[in-house]
């Protein structure tokens, strides 16, 4: 279930796999666009670099603010993109975002059963397990079993809410603020907010004593 590296993942790639049909098609379209002067190879490289540069640190910053500022949290729950824009983050190109809050009685977890819809702007590139058939098929049907495999056991009276993001919405889980984090700075709080806690397969980390 977890995204362990394959045993040989440290070896250099000696022979690239043959291009699939769709890879060949993408390369052909890209070559045509460059040939016609509609974009440059550097535009493509820069777009890939921008995508790879996104990371869960953006999401963690948003969550830490929500933990320390109740007004911001209410704004985030009511209109997530507008709230995040107030932090000076450019949200113009983002999909519609919905924040859902974990509480002592509700635990939220996100999946896209149809493909791999994911709030990339806030969390970066999704982990491989998020895109796996195993996770997508099982978390809607046996959420508690899957969460246990991630190390999260929830009491039976807690309501587990699985969000299947099949359409235009992207979902962000606001994990519960961990006990013992009362005196921490916003920056130190953000370090407790992991990618997986914002997908909802685990809780935020507890501060080290």
């Amino acid at each position: 279930m977890h995204d362990h590296d394959a045993p040989d993942s440290h070896l250099p790639i000696e022979a690239d796999a043959e291009l699939t049909y769709y890879e060949q098609r993408v390369e052909a379209i890209q070559a045509l666009l460059i040939e016609k002067g509609l974009l440059s190879a550097d535009d493509v490289r820069r777009a890939v670099e921008d995508m790879d540069a996104r990371s869960p640190a953006v999401g963690a910053r948003v969550i830490a603010r929500a933990w320390v500022d109740p007004h911001f949290k209410q704004h985030l729950l009511a209109d997530a993109k507008a709230a995040i824009a107030t932090l000076g983050i450019d949200v113009d190109t983002w999909s519609t975002l919905v924040a859902v809050e974990n509480t002592p009685t509700i635990h939220n977890v996100v999946v896209c059963t149809l493909c791999s819809c994911y709030p990339r702007s806030l969390l970066g590139v999704p982990p491989d397990w998020y895109k796996s058939l195993n996770y997508r098929a099982r978390v809607v049907k046996e959420p508690r079993t899957v969460l246990e495999e991630f190390g999260l056991e929830l009491a039976p009276d807690i309501e587990v809410r699985v969000y299947d993001s099949t359409a235009d919405m992207r979902y962000l889980v606001i994990p519960q603020r961990p006990a013992g984090s009362e005196g921490l700075s916003e920056e130190a709080l953000a370090a407790l907010v992991t990618r997986d806690s914002m997908i909802g397969v685990t809780q935020a980390q507890e501060p080290s004593p």
Partner: peptide
Amino acid sequence: WAPAESAGSAPFCQNDRLLIDI
């Protein structure tokens, strides 16, 4: 979903919900 037949821990509990965009 139909109730689980396995004897292991419950795959979901009475109050659990699924929310989906349609």
